[in-house]
Amino acid sequence: MTKVETVVVNVAKQFTKLPGLRYIRLGRFSGEEFRQKFLLEPLKQGKTIIVELDGVRGYGSSFLEEAFGGTVRELDLDITDALNRIKIVTSVESWRLDVEEYIRTAKSRKNATNA
């Protein structure tokens, strides 16, 4: 049995304490930028990611949706697989629930867009 490699990403330490908006075109420290820098590559390589959300000033929902929901859409991940491979560590329960919701509903957005 092969051991799945795990990558730990701490948003506050490795990215920013002040997460920004949804898209790169809107400004610095966006959800899209975070996704591209920290999430896509390890997941493409089949790794599991532990994302530590604490230590920041707060998150806008568009940041979290674009980072995590956007990852599911871009890599066309299976929802169960995405939930298994993207682990959220935080003391703020609502952030974890939000991220899980964005992962679950990412596909429905894609389906709606494709429809």
């Binding site: 920004g20 908006l21 809107l26 400004g27 610095r28 420290f29 230590g55 000033r57 707060g58 806008g60």
Partner: peptide, 30 residues
Amino acid sequence: GVDPTELEPMMADIEEVTGLATHPVYQGII
């Protein structure tokens, strides 16, 4: 080109008063 670091002095003020580095109002502002 929104730069969220513009909001740091505000959040630092809130942290000074409340002792909380994370505050729900950041979400509202951003």
